[in-house]
Simulated scan of single mutants.
Amino acid sequence: MALPLASVQLYTLAKEFSEDMSGSLDKLAALGLKNVEAFDFVRRPDEIRAALDASGLASPTGHAPLLSDELWTPDGSIPTPAPEVVFEAAAKIGMTTVIDPFVPAERWFTEDGVADIAERLNRLVETAAGFGMTVGYHNHAQEFVKSFDGQSAYERFLQLTDDRVEIELDLFWAQTGGQDVPALVESLGDRLVAVHVKDGVVPTANPWAPGSESFGSDSLDQRRAGTGSVPLAESLKAGPGIRFAVIEYDKAPGDVFEDIAASYAFLREGGFVA
């Protein structure tokens, strides 16, 4: 099967992207990258599409809230856009998959909560298809805190969702959740269309478990791909159907463009991307 395409989640360079969208994308293109994964795109699809076109980049996947009634922002919570609004914006940019990036922890702690998440995604499959795209979900570590009848909340979610719901697995956060990451990758089969290539020293305890101390990205010890404890090479080899290997840092350890370049070199030199 074909090797994945390399990409970068633009949240990695959120500050730089906000300050200079075109300049940031030009720097990524200069590294040899052809794809990115957009975030916060619903309010500015035309601006992002123009900047991507000017830099010769594409955004086949993107992150947008689909499963929550409200979206938290530094200025307070606001209602999330209707799914049709999200898909219309995604279509303008040229995306093929819209991925929900985060569902709050407490909704993963009950069987009813997990069923609701799955049902919401299932209802969106046909809506997204009307715009020529698919929907997916991106994990953190809260999906692995609770178990029901021997199944993790994440496994239950997979069981309840339509096979057309695609999966983007964040390898760092899956390991933080205590998973055997290569085995999880293998078990996802053809539903796994993308992985977040992220390395570092994972937290010693799941930060979303009840009673855990509050934490933020600043507390994370994330490192360039291949230099941390996440089994990236083994995980990438375990997923022959992966279409996108998406570089991401929640907290880049140094200069963000140099850190992206180093992770991209890991993917290229290891023969993990086309």
Rank of each mutant, 00 (worst) to 15 (best):
K198V: 03
Q179H: 06
D162K: 11
L160P: 00
R191T: 01
T176C: 11
A183D: 09
L158E: 11
K146P: 00
G200W: 05
R156E: 02
D190L: 10
F157C: 02
W173V: 01
V195N: 04
E143S: 13
E168M: 05
K198R: 15
H196W: 04
A174G: 06
E166K: 15
G189N: 04
L171C: 05
Q175D: 11
D170N: 14
G177K: 04
S152Y: 07
D162H: 12
V145K: 12
A153Q: 09
Q175P: 07
E155N: 08
P182R: 05
E166H: 14
L184E: 00
G177F: 07
E168D: 12
K198H: 09
V181D: 05
T161I: 14
G177I: 07
L160W: 12
G189I: 02
E166L: 15
F172D: 11
P182W: 11
S152L: 01
D180I: 06
R156N: 00
F157R: 08
F144I: 08
D163R: 15
G178L: 12
V193N: 14
A183L: 06
S147R: 13
S152D: 06
P182I: 10
L158Q: 14
V145I: 10
D199S: 09
P182F: 11
D199I: 00
D180C: 01
G177N: 13
E168A: 09
V195P: 03
G178H: 09
R156G: 02
D149A: 15
E166C: 12
S187A: 13
D199N: 07
L184F: 00
F157H: 09
H196E: 03
I167F: 08
L184S: 02
E155H: 10
S147V: 01
D190N: 13
V181T: 12
A183N: 07
L184N: 04
V197W: 01
S152E: 07
S152K: 05
E186I: 00
E186C: 00
L188Y: 00
Q151T: 00
E168R: 03
S187Q: 08
F172I: 01
Q151G: 00
L192A: 01
V201T: 15
S187Y: 09
Y154T: 05
V193L: 14
V193Y: 06
V145F: 06
K198Q: 10
Q179V: 07
Y154H: 14
R164Y: 05
A174C: 07
G200S: 01
L192Q: 01
E155G: 12
F148K: 08
D163I: 01
V195Q: 03
D163V: 14
G200L: 04
D170W: 12
I167V: 15
F172N: 07
F148T: 02
A183W: 08
H196G: 09
H196A: 09
L192C: 03
S147H: 14
I167W: 01
A183Q: 10
V185L: 03
A194K: 08
A183H: 06
D190A: 15
F172W: 08
